[in-house]
Design a protein around this nucleic acid. Structure first.
Lengths: 198, 198
DNA sequence: TGATAAATTGAGGCATACCTCAAGTTGACC
DNA sequence: GGTCAACTTGAGGTATGCCTCAATTTATCA
């Protein structure tokens, strides 16, 4: 058995190097400029021609597939793990949601990921699906606890990320606390007042 | 004194006709495709060359200035008037906000207006300023009434429109109730529970 | 009916960004 | 070292959309 899954003919050394250069460049460029950044700039940053970029990856999606896990997977896993450690269901839910929104506010790439642009990328979809799985379990626990509105569902979570994206994209600088305030109002709207619980 | 403010040389008949054709075309095109629609399509729709469009208006902003009042002013004035007629401060505030969000969801142009893209257009800015004036008065009344959170300000209103825009732009079709649900949560978060009021 | 200034036209220049492919280069293996 | 497939290159084609200007047409007024 080979190293990978499907038996592809091994790459030549120069090709392997260029693959690495391109991946690194894509991480840099996409992280700061978003997943829609010009591929020509990725190639330029890698010190390689655009032809080579298209040889190694063939589509933007393939490049995103290679890069998104590097950019986001670890951070998202850490957040999930930290959340798991919080005993109170409402606090846990709130922490998880807020942390993801914070991540989204931090880097353009994360915004593209959270808002699920580029649905063509499998890795990006997988990352989002994982997040939905975690979020759904936190969500359910909070609802069983009676601290989260019963009529709130996973689809509403998606809307929250899209809403955040709208705020962030308009004014990434001054929006620094705009999104925090908005999130505060939303969370308050989602919580069931402790005094009204059985 | 002439008809206008500044004494501009009167337009020739053909120029006046083209001005009208262009304005009508811009209303159609901008309304359905948003204020960022290709100017070439506006010219094409008007049955006129792009050169003429640039002769009459010179910038996209000037065209927007001419068209935005036609597209939005009346509807926004109606909403404000209807809101004025509602006696209960909270209901009035909620009605006004919800109606504007609904307008925003209805037509791409309205979304561009609410999200304050194209800040270069004076008319667009005026429309927004008017809305802020109304909203602020409704907002203040609801706060004095004790039904709206004290820490909610006009800037937070802007964020709500941007948030709505984010939801709408992602999936204008399926988002039909996504934005309504999200708005519901936000409003719930903004309201002060009547049982907790003095 | 000219004469003339005002308007219109649309091809074409500019910029961005995608993607391809014929020609040239280079790694790998004998 | 020679051979050949693998790889790289970058100019150039495609597409979108902005904006301009020399050549042409047309409204207007005497």
């Amino acid at each position: 058995m080979g190293t990978g899954g499907t038996a592809r003919p091994a790459l030549r050394r120069d090709a392997r190097e260029n693959l690495a250069k391109l991946t690194n460049a894509a991480v840099d460029v996409f992280r700061t400029q978003g997943l829609g950044a010009p591929l020509e700039e990725v190639a330029r940053t890698a010190g390689v021609s655009t032809g080579t970029l298209y040889n190694r990856f063939g589509t933007r999606e393939a490049l995103i597939d290679a890069v998104v896990p590097i950019i986001a997977a670890e951070q998202m896993a850490i957040i999930a793990a930290e959340a798991q450690a919080i005993p109170d269901p409402w606090s846990r839910f709130r922490f998880y949601l807020t942390s993801l929104l914070e991540l989204q506010a931090t880097l353009p790439a994360l915004d593209d990921i959270m808002a699920r642009r580029y649905p063509g990328s499998e890795q990006l979809a997988r990352l989002c699906d994982d997040a939905v799985v975690h979020a759904s379990s936190f969500l359910k626990a909070a609802q069983e606890d009676g601290s989260l509105r019963e009529d709130f569902g996973p689809a509403d979570l998606t809307a929250i990320f899209l809403a955040n994206s709208g705020i962030l994209r308009s004014d990434p600088k001054a929006g620094a606390d705009a999104w925090r305030r908005h999130t505060g109002f939303v969370l308050h709207g989602l919580r069931v007042d402790p005094r009204r619980r059985p």
